[in-house]
């Protein structure tokens, strides 16, 4: 009985937080847009029965997504932005995590706190504050102008650069924390052993430190990549009109076109694209758990 409940809880969790919303979205994606409340048909009614309802559903909206290059371009552009941002987050996050793991023991809680601290402030306010930093009259340009590094203000806000900055900044802790936890567990004598066996410092880093923090790197990359792919807030606040991301397209379908079915179809495809990395991530986590045992 106890065992049954233990097994049931995660499944109920999955059902309530993933499956039910997914079915609702999936069902809308198979409907047709209509001028009604809510704005799609068919609506389920007990009188007509379940078969009459199901027979009206079709995959037209998914087919529609293939008729306009906008959609696959937006998916591709989102992928590219998410991958690039993940790469930069890794590039910046790894040295930070490495520095934290090598820092004296008594400093580490403070450093950890500094990494987590931004989460205490609203995500929106933090993104808004980047507008203040990056705008043409913003602090960054003022400092650079004052220092004489540039003559005319840099145009960063409303470009893809600002989107990268926003995504990397926002998700950096998700990159740092798993890598830090991997590096923290790394036995320092392994590095000494590698040096003892003929490695230079750099070789020891590539041959020992990097492979042994691989799981942290993978976890960090997924934790940045997955939310970055569907990101809407950051590109809409920091990005320019050229920034093409699927989150923004979804917004337009939903709000501007009032086409909930197509918007749902876009969301379902996004989810399917995400399922691959999520499953890979899950597997990585599982393997790591097994290795730790």
């Amino acid at each position: 009985m106890r065992r049954a409940i233990l097994i049931l809880v995660p499944y109920l969790w999955l059902l309530a937080l993933f499956l039910v919303p997914f079915i609702i979205v999936g069902r809308i994606s198979l409907s047709d847009t209509a001028l009604a409340r809510p704005p799609y048909l068919p609506q389920f009614s007990w009188d007509e029965g379940i078969w009459a309802f199901l027979s009206q559903l079709d995959f037209e909206n998914f087919w529609f997504l293939t008729t306009d290059d906008l959609y696959w371009k937006a998916y591709l552009s989102s992928l590219q932005i998410a991958i690039t941002a993940t790469f930069f987050a890794l590039l910046i996050g790894y040295p930070i995590a490495y520095g934290m793991a090598r820092a004296p023991e008594e400093w580490r809680p403070t450093l950890m706190m500094l990494v987590i601290l931004p989460f205490w402030t609203s995500f929106l306010i933090r993104v808004y504050s980047w507008i203040g930093i990056l705008s043409q009259e913003g602090y960054l340009n003022q400092i650079l102008l004052w220092a004489g590094i540039i003559d005319a203000p840099l145009i960063i806000l409303n470009t893809n650069t600002a989107v990268y900055i926003g995504i990397v900044y926002t998700y950096l802790p998700f990159m740092i924390l798993p890598i830090y936890s991997a590096l923290d567990r790394l036995d320092g004598s392994l590095i000494e052993a590698a040096e003892d066996l003929g490695c230079s410092r750099l070789q020891a880093f590539w041959l020992i430190t990097v492979p042994l923090s691989k799981n942290g790197i993978i976890a960090g990359c997924f934790l940045v990549f997955i939310p970055a792919l569907g990101e809407f807030v950051i590109p809409s606040l920091l990005g320019g009109s050229e920034t093409l991301m699927i989150g923004k397209i979804l917004w337009e379908e939903f709000f501007n076109n009032r086409d909930w079915p197509v918007a749902s179809a876009v969301a379902v495809v996004l989810l399917l694209i995400l399922v691959v990395p999520i499953v890979l991530f899950q597997r990585n986590q599982q393997r790591q758990a097994e290795e730790d045992r």
């Binding site: 847009t33 290059d69 906008l70 937006a74 050229e242 397209i249 501007n256 076109n257 009032r258 086409d259």
Partner: peptide, 19 residues
């Protein structure tokens, strides 16, 4: 209407993003 709205939105996306 819904069909024209889609054309309008699409046109606007093209104007803004060039895509």
């Amino acid at each position: 209407d819904a069909g024209v709205q889609r054309v309008v939105t699409r046109l606007w996306t093209k104007v803004k993003s060039g895509t």
